[in-house]
Design a protein around this nucleic acid. Structure first.
Lengths: 235, 235
DNA sequence: GTGTCGGTTCGGCGTGCGCCGAACCGACGA
DNA sequence: TCGTCGGTTCGGCGCACGCCGAACCGACAC
């Protein structure tokens, strides 16, 4: 079978700090250019090219050439899942976070962030909990969309019903959050919620990171739609 | 945050073919001695020691010293999950399986195998499907044990009710099978089912591998308890 | 056209690490 | 008590690979 070699080859893609940093950056779900990744990780452009070649060849990333730019992004939700799974396995090392700046970043990430294409962090968990409390999700085993939840998505949030047809991707999925150690909504529904919140400007990216901030309008909207209270001020 | 470095360090543990082979062998859920792993992977004992030190230090394996033996096993179900997740991401390479012997092994693994502590492969999927069909599991979102299912486990299968109390480990979990591309039952219930089937000698390991074979008694029992028909003869 | 800029190719450097064999230690059995 | 055996430590070898700079290519702007 030679499975060991295959597994090792896959793991080797992420076993380099620079490549790992690339993948973590790409967890925001957007497409980055080579330059951006190079600056982000602090390596030369030539080095970046080599790494990207390996990641694309290994199937973790897809690329799109456009003019003189090379855009790369995660190959899909399954790749993002794999990464979050791995991150969840990193044992909480001692003495981290170290610097003030990194502590601030960690706090922002913990408060709310995107996990490829859905919401995670305290914000993601809070929304999931509220949807459960309002009967929009069913907690039978993991997370299932109720019929009330389906109409809520289309009417209250304005998701196109055609976008909720079951396809290759499951309608709901429970994603375990590594900061909260709690499940939150992922899958197609999670992605649509995240998209609509962005489109309504109820959440905004903090700088260019994965961390997101709830806008005042968003706070009102989530209060109105889900009964959520004060997410930004606690801690 | 230096998360990239942490992720890389974790991935590096599996980025070596020998260590990967160790972990795959340990996916059978049993404890192996250093000697056994050395022979299995075809490396010197000294090399094995170094690899095991790294894997234990990295938290993927736990060890138990007993006399002059060093037993190692996977750190827990979460580690097994991570490995199966990674295996599921290995793209189906061309031209595999290559040899007759490896083809036979693959077929046996596809037919039925243990996935750390529960059943997978065609057998695992068939049992899960039968449990769903008989109302022992609920398909709402993923897999949930119904009340009928709970009594079935304790009466028909003889699982101690005290063992079904929710603890740190979820009662049910859906594990995606990489041969069948289908969900099957994992979690506490899955582990108990696998254990009871072994204890009743309804399944038996093939040699020392993870592959399992349904015994004639097992075939009768699964027919009686779940209405399952002829799993061994097809293909 | 010319300059700038993103990306690639190539050669070369340093080192991290996977491997082994030899020596050693400690547990067990005769 | 002495051999055997599982496991460990240590020194050393060699390869793989991550990195860079220099040269080059193609796209875009002026």
């Amino acid at each position: 079978m030679a499975r060991g070699a295959d597994l090792a080859k896959l793991a080797a893609l992420l076993a380099d700090e620079t490549r790992a940093e690339f993948c973590l950056a790409l967890l925001d779900g957007r497409a980055w250019t080579g330059r951006e990744l190079a600056r982000h990780a602090g390596v030369a452009p030539s080095t970046t090219t080599e790494h990207l070649n390996r990641l694309v060849a290994g199937g973790l990333l897809t690329e799109r050439r456009q003019g003189r730019h090379r855009y790369v992004q995660l190959a899909g939700p399954h790749t993002a899942e794999l990464l979050e799974h791995l991150i969840g396995h990193i044992q909480p090392g001692p003495g981290r976070p170290r610097t003030l700046r990194s502590a601030a970043t960690s706090a922002a990430l913990a408060r709310g962030r995107t996990c490829y294409d859905h919401l995670a962090g305290r914000l993601g968990v809070a929304i999931t909990d509220a949807m459960l409390g309002n009967g929009l999700l069913d907690h039978a085993a993991e997370l299932a969309l109720t019929s009330t939840g389906r109409t809520w998505l289309t009417t209250a949030l304005g998701v196109d019903p055609a976008d909720l047809r079951p396809g290759r991707r499951p309608l709901t999925r429970a994603c375990l959050d590594w900061t909260e150690r709690r499940s939150h909504l992922a899958g197609l529904s999670g992605a649509h919620i995240c998209r609509r919140l962005h489109e309504n400007e109820w959440i905004k990216r903090i700088g260019t990171s994965r961390a997101v901030r709830l806008t005042p309008a968003g706070e009102q909207a989530l209060h109105r739609l889900l009964g959520l209270e004060s997410l930004n001020d606690d801690q």
